[in-house]
């Protein structure tokens, strides 16, 4: 409807142009939205109760999902590691392999993806529904800025919750790896832990993973509240916004992960 009728490859090119324009438009709108949220942070920080509530909603609700996922990811890492490493007689390094995989990559990435699916969708649809039921307009009419009162605390809650969830995911994952490797597959317990401790570095591995998770927390929370706030205020619009939030967050997290990894490794 928007594109004028032109045949063949030229239309394809035109459509690519349109989606590129849409992409940068949305990208820019997201940046501006982030600036508006950041400008509202003093308001949110002056009302810690609102933020605590959102940490609770974002964190506690995702907790069980994150813990289960962490446990099974850790177990499968140990299983795969054992299968491969035992060919070289290096089963002792399973703990190290699992721990490095978890704290550097899988922990932050999988946590962010699960957060997007559990808490992110809840955020988008909650804000979208508030918009659809005039609650946001109602706040505007009561001279209260919804970005300050609704969006900023939810954003902050997500940003705080994601790194904590990542830490819990990592710990559960390593517990799962221990369970599978030591208890099920009979790897020597001492070797498991000592190899892990010798090769996993607090700064380069654990902390760089946390740095990643902070970025992911910002990205996932921002996209969730952005899509909810800018949705078409109908039942269908809210549904679409929720889906879009998950898809965009997943892609953003994966792209961002590559960029952050390159940056963190390049720093050494």
């Amino acid at each position: 409807m928007t594109a004028p009728r032109v045949p063949g490859w030229r239309r394809l090119l035109l459509e690519a142009g349109y989606s590129l324009r849409d992409f940068f438009g949305t990208f820019g709108a997201g940046q501006l939205f982030l600036l508006r949220i950041l400008a509202s942070l003093p308001y949110a920080l002056a009302r810690p109760r609102l933020v605590i509530q959102q940490v609770y909603v974002a964190g506690v609700q995702s907790l069980v999902v994150i813990m289960l996922a962490g446990l099974f990811v850790g177990m499968v890492l140990a299983l795969q590691g054992h299968n491969t490493l035992s060919r070289f007689g290096a089963e002792d390094t399973i703990g190290m392999v699992a721990a490095l995989g978890l704290v550097r990559e899988l922990g932050p990435v999988v946590t962010a993806l699960l957060f997007a699916g559990r808490a992110g969708t809840a955020l988008s649809s909650e804000i979208g529904l508030m918009k659809a039921t005039d609650q946001l307009a109602g706040m505007e009419m009561m001279a209260v800025d919804p970005i300050k009162r609704v969006v900023a605390p939810r954003f902050l809650g997500g940003v705080i919750a994601v790194p904590i969830l990542t830490l819990i995911f990592n710990a559960m994952g390593i517990f799962g790896a221990w369970l599978e490797a030591v208890i099920v597959l009979g790897v020597d317990e001492g070797a498991f832990w000592s190899q892990m401790q010798a090769q996993v570095d607090l700064q380069d591995d654990v902390l760089s993973g946390i740095v990643k998770s902070v970025f992911f927390g910002v990205a996932a929370s921002l996209l969730a509240v952005f899509e909810g706030y800018n949705c078409v205020p109908t039942a269908e619009g809210v549904g679409r916004a929720t889906t879009r939030a998950v898809v965009h967050t997943s892609l953003t997290v994966l792209v961002l992960n590559f960029m952050l990894t390159a940056w963190l490794l390049g720093g050494n």
Binding site: Y56, V60, I168, A171, I174, M196
Partner: peptide
Amino acid sequence: GTGLFVFMGIVALFFLTTRVSSFD
């Protein structure tokens, strides 16, 4: 609930720093 959640995060961090990695 929030307190417990944050506490779990701290325990996890403690575990990661002491058991999993070598503190530098």
